[in-house]
Design a protein around this nucleic acid. Structure first.
Length: 640
RNA sequence: GCCGGAGUAGCUCAGCUGGUAGAGCAUUCGCCUUGUAAGCGAAAGGCCCCGGGUUCGAUCCCCGGCUCCGGCUCCA
């Protein structure tokens, strides 16, 4: 009998009979593995257990907990979802159902214009549970494309037909794979687990509209989102995480902590409350430290500029639909959606020498963009926000040093806010672009060299640059592991051209400067939104709008409390006295909820000792200490 | 913009497919003068999102609008 030899992940060879499958391999290794096995990775590609292995292949048995096994399980769950939906609403047209980051979805077109709501998820889950209970095997088969099209035509599944037709056209596909589980047969690349019984824990989360192929001109389908895990425990932990994320939601915490509020009177434009304004200012101060260190000068340019300017800058052609316009007497103006044209006007308003370069103009510029209403989201997607923007005018040769400086400013600034994990992405020339090949090459090279010089890891996104130049984007990862794009650094040859910006060179001739657009945090308001969620509203002492809540035990201690507040304020501690006629317990309760880092209880004992009793948010009672000592404690914690 | 859901006191929400409304917190006013996570009592607070329609009668049902929430290329 012929045999084959495969290689296991630890390098050991395993001899199997010819035609042996992944399942056979698992069984040959051990019964426990055979039972746990879900799929198999062959030379890096995940496959069904039932497919035969070939001689010499590297084989890894995928079990729960291994990378990619969860994707297989969730893909299985998506099929079971479709099975359940077809049970309940025969005639439903199915489209696609992939696994995604936190679960899976499946997009359907329900018959007769019916659209299920979230109330219907329960009965779908029940049907799914029945199929899981029945432990139906996933069976793979192959079919010629003509036959497959015929099949899905017969079943009145036009989306599947379209998918196959596209595969034929785009990839020259001749055979497609089909997967059966119970009564349901789906066009599917796979892979799948052995049977539906493996889906031990699943839940349907929500229903939403989604366009067929993401194209808003095409049919709107109904998407059902769900998630699945190998165990009930993992599912519960996942739901717990979602709950935590909800509790951290800046849209909930913002108004609750008195930071900002969102009102229907100005959709997408937050109102900043006193403590939120303090927070914004503290963030701006950190940015300004970087401006000073980096040799930037700060400017302010107008909010509203003549429409003509936007024609000149190219925004009117490329950005008009996102701009707000306003008529004043006979002139048409636009609210600025970006700060760069203003900065260019400043640069162009006087003659410059090569000795001035690099000229670094920073602006905390409030920009207004008419975002489509449906995409507005708290502070994260708004219609008006402040960019910590800057434009550096320099020579081609100076780009490298400037980029280096910008990168290190970003590192320092992010570290200050507790974001140590920074992901860097280099985006190169898109198909549609302006400028010469040489300019692009030099700019991309300058960015690449700067990143290499710093020994940074970075991803390249080919063709994702702006139309005027390549860029580097900086992404941070928050406490819940979510990624946010914040900083950006873009090389621009075009704007100086359009605004005819020049400097006088050493050779006495006029030269064109290069312009670098750069933002460290991006949107100040959005960054504060990210901070709120990152810290769950429990800001570190240096960033807390109120660092110490002073809590008099009884009304007779209010004067002493006010005195303490004055002394602390004089040393720079931000504090607030709670002089209501409430019990200490109540005041502590409220202060804890406001998440102030320190509470200072003052009563008879403290008054006679010139002290405060310190309670820390989180740590509890720390005992009494003199007022100056507490001020020193805060100072120690805040200084850097 | 599109699909689904929601809109009731300042906030969080109850309110039987029809008879013009309730709780907790917050607010104000009393009382209490408090020692490390909610003291007691009272009052005040409502165009039940807006506009139409159905009805003897609409917070509730129907239509339109506004605002908010979840989504809308992670592609067999």
């Amino acid at each position: 009998m012929a045999s084959i030899t495969i290689k296991l992940p630890d390098g050991t060879p395993l001899e199997l009979e010819e035609g042996a499958t992944g399942a056979d391999a698992a069984a040959a290794i051990g019964p426990r593995l055979a039972k746990d096995a879900l799929a198999v990775r062959v030379n890096g590609e995940v496959r069904d257990l039932a497919r035969p292995l070939d001689d010499g292949e590297s084989v890894e048995i995928l079990t729960p907990g291994r990378p990619d096994s969860l994707e297989v399980l969730r893909h299985d769950a998506a099929h079971v979802l479709a099975t359940a939906v077809l049970d309940l609403w025969p005639g439903t047209k199915v489209s696609i159902g992939p696994p995604i980051a936190d679960g899976f979805y499946y997009d359907f077109e329900f018959p007769d214009g019916f659209r299920p709501s979230e109330d219907d998820l329960g009965q779908i889950e029940e049907r799914m549970a029945a199929h899981v209970e029945a432990d139906e095997p996933f069976e793979r088969s192959e079919s010629g494309v003509a036959e497959a099209i015929e099949r899905f035509r017969r079943e009145d599944q036009p989306y599947k037909v379209e998918l196959i037709e596209d595969l034929i056209r785009d990839e020259g596909t001749e055979t497609v794979s089909l997967y059966r589980n119970g009564p349901f047969v789906d066009l599917c690349r796979g892979p799948h687990g052995p049977s539906t019984g493996r889906i031990k824990a699943f839940k349907l989360n929500s229903v939403a509209g989604a366009y067929w192929r993401g194209d808003e001109n095409r049919q709107m389908l109904t998407r059902i989102y769900g998630t699945a895990f190998f165990s009930k425990k993992e599912l519960e932990e996942h739901l717990e995480r979602l709950e935590q994320a909800r509790a951290r939601d800046h849209r909930r915490l913002g108004p609750q902590l008195g930071l900002f509020t969102l009102l229907p009177d100005a959709p997408g434009m937050p109102f900043w409350l006193p403590e939120g304004t303090v927070l914004l200012d503290l963030v701006a101060r950190e940015v300004r430290k970087q401006l000073v260190a980096g040799g930037y000068e700060e400017i302010k340019t107008p909010q509203v500029l003549d429409e003509e300017l936007w024609h000149r800058s190219g925004h009117w052609d490329n950005y008009a639909e996102n701009m707000f316009f306003t008529d004043v007497e006979d002139r048409r103006f636009a609210l600025k959606p970006m700060n760069c044209p203003g900065a260019c006007l400043v640069f162009g308003s006087e003659r410059h020498s090569y000795r001035d370069l690099p000229l670094r103009l920073a602006e905390f510029g409030l920009v207004s963009r008419n975002e489509r209403e449906g995409v507005l989201h708290g502070l994260l997607r708004v219609r008006a926000f402040t960019q910590d923007d800057a434009h550096v005018y320099c020579t081609l040769d100076q780009i490298g040093d400037e980029v280096d400086a910008i990168c290190s400013a970003i590192d320092q600034l992010y570290a200050r806010f507790g974001f140590d994990e920074v992901r860097v992405e280099l985006s190169t020339r898109p198909d549609k672009s302006i400028g010469t090949d040489e300019q692009w090459e030099r700019a991309e090279e300058a960015l690449r060299e700067a990143l290499e010089r710093q020994g940074r890891e970075y991803e390249v996104s080919p063709g994702e640059g702006t139309f005027y130049g390549p860029k580097i984007d900086f992404h941070i990862t928050d406490a819940l592991g979510r990624s946010w794009q914040c900083g950006t650094c873009q090389i621009d040859f075009q704007m100086p051209e359009r605004f005819d910006l020049t400097y006088q060179g050493e050779d006495n001739a006029e030269h064109r400067p290069v312009m670098i657009h750069r933002a460290l945090l991006g949107s100040m308001e959005r960054f504060v939104g990210i901070l709120i969620e990152h810290y769950a509203g429990r800001f570190p002492t240096w960033l807390a709008p109120v660092q110490a809540a002073i809590l008099p035990v009884a009304d007779r201690h209010n004067d002493y409390a006010a005195g303490v507040a004055d002394r602390l304020a004089a040393t720079g501690v931000r504090c607030r006295v709670d002089d209501r006629s409430e019990s200490v317990g109540k005041k502590i309760h409220d202060a804890e909820i406001s998440k102030a880092p320190y509470m200072l209880v003052v009563g008879d004992r403290e008054e006679s000792d010139g002290a405060v009793s310190v309670r820390s948010h989180g740590e509890g009672d720390l005992g009494a200490e003199p007022v100056d000592e507490f001020a020193a404690r805060v100072d120690r914690e805040v200084s850097w």
